[in-house]
Design a binder for these strands. Sequence first.
DNA 1: AAGCAGACTGAACGAGCGTTCAGTTTGATG
DNA 2: CATCAAACTGAACGCTCGTTCAGTCTGCTT
Lengths: 208, 208
Amino acid sequence: MDKSLKKIESQVKDKELVELRRMEIVKAAVDLFVQKGFHKTTVREIAQKFGMSVGTLYEYIRTKEDILYLVCDYIHSSFGMRVRPALHITPDSVKTLKGAIDTYYRMIDEMQDYLVFLYQETKSLSHDDRKYIFKAEEDMTDIFEEIINRGIEDGSFKLDRNQVGLFAHNIMVLGQMWAFRRWALQKSYTLDGYIKAQSARLIKELTS
Amino acid sequence: MDKSLKKIESQVKDKELVELRRMEIVKAAVDLFVQKGFHKTTVREIAQKFGMSVGTLYEYIRTKEDILYLVCDYIHSSFGMRVRPALHITPDSVKTLKGAIDTYYRMIDEMQDYLVFLYQETKSLSHDDRKYIFKAEEDMTDIFEEIINRGIEDGSFKLDRNQVGLFAHNIMVLGQMWAFRRWALQKSYTLDGYIKAQSARLIKELTS
DNA sequence: AAGCAGACTGAACGAGCGTTCAGTTTGATG
DNA sequence: CATCAAACTGAACGCTCGTTCAGTCTGCTT
């Protein structure tokens, strides 16, 4: 799942160079997109930040939307790269879930600008591309579901089987809320306080 | 709070006509915006659906962004008009909260397209206009806070005072999740099932 | 050195779109 | 019926921006 589904064609032959330049393009574009939004960012601006001419930029992509796709893909895989290695399945299900929540919520805090951007601009992607991006969310949900299911099996958690999916969604949404409602929450809570409060509540619900 | 904060100037003198035509404009624009997004909708399209020429349209607004503001304001006040009258404060705090959740969640279901649109396009508004729109969210949070606080006072709910705000946010976000994650949730749950499950969980948490 | 392919340049093109304005219609007034 | 202002029209303007392409530069090969 590290590589994108879609192959975007380019004029340039050298595969490694394409990879390298595209990473530069993404790095240049992501900040502009997050700051100004996709529509208000011009290809010229991206090229300028990228340090090359518009013409060159178009050697590596076909359309402006390709850049959006690359950026979304980049953000999405950054998430994946950060969560996966940080998730330790331990014999103690409570500890495992606590750790997963902590990891996920901290990642959201670090990447809040990207997260908000993803939610706001995915509708500008084609239907197929959007599905691919949503896939990342489903993968994450699956991870939480698995942890909860293990906990139920070993008797740590009490939860109706057909509520596991919903509970996994709740965990994720309560984390994402930190980014989406920062205008309210980040006035009254610190990240640590927020994680502690939400985490305690979720765990208590599962164990009582 | 029914009238907008901002007065948008118009060429037309007759105040009532302005009000009438603007409502027609909003009605025409809102569907197009929800369907295609703000940026991809042209003023010409709106004028056409509105049934008048572009020139006339511009007698009632100054810029395209004015239309966005009018639409956001319209959506926001539709929310307000629907929730407020449906909220009954009863002596039974549990029943009151259950009713409020039910009302709010059903409203989200009905207006899910609008809600998603609001979240996706508010960033295109000016800073002041955005603040005005966020205000609606804060008002709603206040309502839930008040219900919870009453419940704590009359002994129905057990919750640390400094967690009331957070709990109110949780209630709202778990409702909005129905709209934002419909791609996953609305496959596996009915609205009634969803409300019952989330509501039960929230109430249980407050009363146990 | 000559030849050549791959990488790069940026002026130019042209379509799309927000906005305007010179002019027409409408209907109220005297 | 004449007058006039308010409401309406839509072609035209002008600017922005995605995209292209004729031409230049670079460095490798023979």
